[in-house]
């Protein structure tokens, strides 16, 4: 999709909220839903259309955990680190996945741009702890091994479809 198409779509999203300033968060959520992250151009356009400073838009976008200003992987993996999951050992799952994906430092997305690994404060599925989501699908009672296995399956699937193409 070209940049112009993206900006056109962003414009449509802002218009669908009648350019109301208070809809800023909802607008950014919709944009992120479609493109998985908020690009600089998109945010500048939103600011312009809403008639607010671009610093304000950036300020709000960086306040909320769910907004990403960087492009993300195809699969967004979130490991819950809420209390219940923590008590039932979610940290080793996160650590295991980081190692599996070869992530270091602040890096969140694997170098093949397939996976983005994040933590989430609590998914509210504490009864199933420890849990993990892949593109918002909840996977209950994970272990480091089962989590890696899930990712391996996805990677294999991607490689297969790649090979076909």
């Amino acid at each position: 999709m070209g940049k112009q198409d993206v900006l056109k779509r962003v414009e449509e999203i802002v218009d669908s909220y009648d350019c109301r300033r208070e809809a800023l968060i909802a607008i950014m959520q919709d944009i992120q839903n479609e493109y998985k992250y908020l690009s600089t151009e998109a945010l500048e356009l939103v600011a312009d259309k809403l008639g607010v400073g671009v610093a304000k838009v950036y300020s709000v976008a960086t306040f909320y955990e769910n907004f990403s200003l960087e492009a993300k992987g195809k699969y967004i993996v979130k490991v819950c680190c809420g209390t219940a999951c923590h008590v039932r050992k979610s940290q080793p799952i996160y650590d295991g996945l980081r190692e599996y994906l070869g992530l270091s430092g602040k890096q969140k997305t694997s170098s093949d741009a397939l996976f983005t690994l994040e933590t989430v404060a609590c998914l509210g599925a504490c009864g199933l702890s420890p849990v993990m989501t892949i593109n918002d699908e909840v996977h209950p009672k994970m272990t480091p091994e089962s989590a890696i296995e899930l990712l391996e399956k996805l990677r294999a699937k991607e490689e297969a479809s790649h090979a076909e193409a």
Partner: peptide, 9 residues
């Protein structure tokens, strides 16, 4: 003007 604002939290 809103040139400066808070970033992050």
């Amino acid at each position: 003007m809103n040139i400066l604002d808070f970033v992050g939290r």
